[in-house]
Design a protein around this nucleic acid. Structure first.
Lengths: 136, 136
DNA sequence: ATATATTCCTACTATCCAGATAGGAATTAC
DNA sequence: GTAATTCCTATCTGGATAGTAGGAATATAT
């Protein structure tokens, strides 16, 4: 239950790897080898991280990736959201559309419960940073 | 991210429905109609709830289901675990087997982070009961 | 300039599982 | 004995996840 995608786990390991390089670039190939992540698959992950402005990249020879900020300023929530979008236990959270549960009536009792779960998860993930993970 | 299966949402709505029946039995067909849950699919859900001793059942004519305890004594964690097992963001939590991340070494930095997430989720889900949800 | 190393882009494939359906067997009330 | 119900087993299907493939664009070094 509530399992995290391989993609997200890979992304976090990649970010941790970059954090330990302390500003020096690391190539996707290097990260792939060090963290046991399929090389081609990792490329797509790095692209997403770039799109979310969590890493900077340099193309061409001697290129590679580096963190776009200090490890203590990058929340785990940001990394996870870059991979799989915002935390949303049920799809009706954050959208106006009614789910099947409310098709016949105005109220959906569990909605507040799910909202609370989202808040609990967001609070934890938002409070942790790459630095916290690096320090174990 | 962290989306909850339809099965779990159905199960919760079914439990809430039973709670509102205050000890009287409700048939699967009745719950299905009231909560807009596919009838045959709901049967399997009720079986699981029974297996986890969250509901009692009576077979045959005038049979049906009722809560196996008071709504305030049934935690949401128990209901969710009955559907999809225990909260486990990453598979290495709760098992001794090493994941690919640790194949080449003894340590996995993110493990503590994931453990903390599990605890945060368990704490929230464990603190809420069917009664809380019924009261909205 | 040319070779090389890298990111970046698009498309494809395979596997797995959630969600749902179907048919009937076992059980009980009346 | 009939109707209503839970219970059991098997099967189908769509979509998502994980991973692969091939190459275009870009930058560096010599």
């Amino acid at each position: 239950m509530f399992s995290v995608s391989a993609r997200t786990q890979y992304a976090i390991r990649a970010m941790v790897h970059l954090a330990m390089r302390e500003g020096h670039t690391a190539t996707a190939a290097e990260i792939s080898a060090a963290e046991h992540i399929p090389a081609k698959y990792l490329e797509g992950i790095m692209s997403r991280l770039k799109l979310s402005a969590l890493v900077d990249s340099e193309r061409g020879k001697n290129g590679g990736y580096r963190l776009a900020g200090r490890p203590e300023d990058i929340s785990m929530l940001a990394v996870i959201e870059a991979m799989d979008g915002s935390v949303r236990p049920v799809s009706c959270l954050g959208s106006q559309t009614n789910c099947s549960a409310t098709a016949a009536g105005p109220s959906c009792l569990p909605k507040k419960f799910w909202g609370g779960l989202k808040e609990a998860i967001d609070a934890y993930l938002g409070s942790k940073t790459i630095r916290d993970v690096v320090e174990g």
